[in-house]
């Protein structure tokens, strides 16, 4: 089972956008069973596929809606309140993924308050209570048998939640804007990758798919920065030969009630769609190359 995670602790570089594109592309076009996981307390990934609700006990954050399979009259429910999020792996072993409008795609949404609570443990406990939980969860036979691919959206942070994604993932990619400070963010991510890489056993490596230039504009700044990275012999092999340009349509499809609701429903001649498909093809080529 492949576990792919876009990561960058710089916000606004397009992690969620890439997560969405990959989740939709793989489930629609590659016909694989995909589990989307939202590990970002902001819950934007979840909001794409579910109608997230305001959490009454923490109104600044979102929580998942009631699960479609929840029957309040069912006596087997026990204590279940009808909602399920990935945060539950830190507190209680039972999680129930939600279906989405795409048949092969399920989602375990985030829950802002619970994710933040899970992250704020004492340093001495973080290994046991946080780092290993995601890895253990994804190791359950029920999960491995149900899904071919897991896509995990991460928060713009290097905290315990992100570290636990690094510990669980098989493939990492780093979307970035081609500007000085976001590129410094790449440096930080490479450090995390390096530290986790040397801990991994030989048969379970952490693959760096590459750095994806995102929100790219045809201005000298972006072109020169990209050129600069390509001139650095150590990193140039990790710069993806594809990129996503800054296009209004990428944001437009996320608006509520948008038509079409996904880039992939645009006509084949559409530049944005072609670009999105190239990026997904490249990433999938690198991820599934041994299959």
């Amino acid at each position: 089972m492949k576990i792919i995670a876009p990561a960058n602790n710089k916000g606004g570089v397009g992690k969620t956008k890439v997560s969405i594109l990959l989740a939709e592309y793989i489930s629609k076009f590659l016909n694989k069973k995909v589990l989307a996981i939202d590990f970002d307390p902001q819950c934007n990934f979840s909001q794409r596929f579910l109608k997230m609700e305001l959490d009454p006990s923490a109104p600044q954050g979102l929580m998942p809606p009631i699960h479609p399979d929840y029957d309040p009259a069912d006596s087997d429910n026990g204590n279940w309140d009808g909602r399920s999020s990935i945060a539950d792996i830190f507190f209680d072993p039972g999680v129930i993924p939600y279906p989405t409008y795409i048949e092969n795609l399920d989602i375990l949404p985030g829950h802002a308050d619970k994710l933040l609570a899970a992250e704020s443990v004492r340093r001495s406990e973080v290994v046991e209570k946080v780092y290993k939980q995601l890895d253990n969860f994804l190791d359950f036979p029920e999960v491995k048998n149900a899904y071919d691919v897991v896509i995990i959206d991460t928060a713009p942070s290097k905290g315990p939640l992100t570290v636990s994604v690094f510990k669980a993932a098989t493939d990492i990619l780093i979307p970035s804007v081609m500007e000085e400070q976001p590129i410094q963010g790449i440096y930080g991510m490479l450090q995390l990758w390096m530290q986790e890489s040397i801990r991994r056993e030989k048969n379970k490596p952490l693959n760096l798919v590459g750095i994806l230039p995102n929100l790219f504009r045809q201005i000298n700044l972006h072109k020169d920065m990209l050129g600069s990275l390509l001139e650095n012999k150590s990193i140039s092999k990790y710069i993806m030969p594809v990129k996503l340009c800054q296009r209004a349509v990428y944001a437009e499809v996320d608006a509520e009630g948008a038509i079409p609701r996904t880039i992939f429903d645009l006509p084949d001649s559409n530049v944005a769609k072609q670009e999105a498909i190239s990026v997904c093809e490249y990433i999938c080529g690198r991820v599934f190359k041994h299959d």
Binding site: M194, S197, I198, R199, N220, M225, S228
Partner: peptide, 28 residues
């Protein structure tokens, strides 16, 4: 105006990647 990565960043990127690629389990 030509934009580019700062010297430090360039070197830092190089060093980190080398460390990850050439890792031996003995470095930990």
């Amino acid at each position: 105006k030509r934009f580019g990565l700062s010297q430090n960043l360039n070197q830092g990127l190089k060093d980190t990647i080398n460390a990850a690629e050439n890792h031996t389990s003995a470095l930990r």
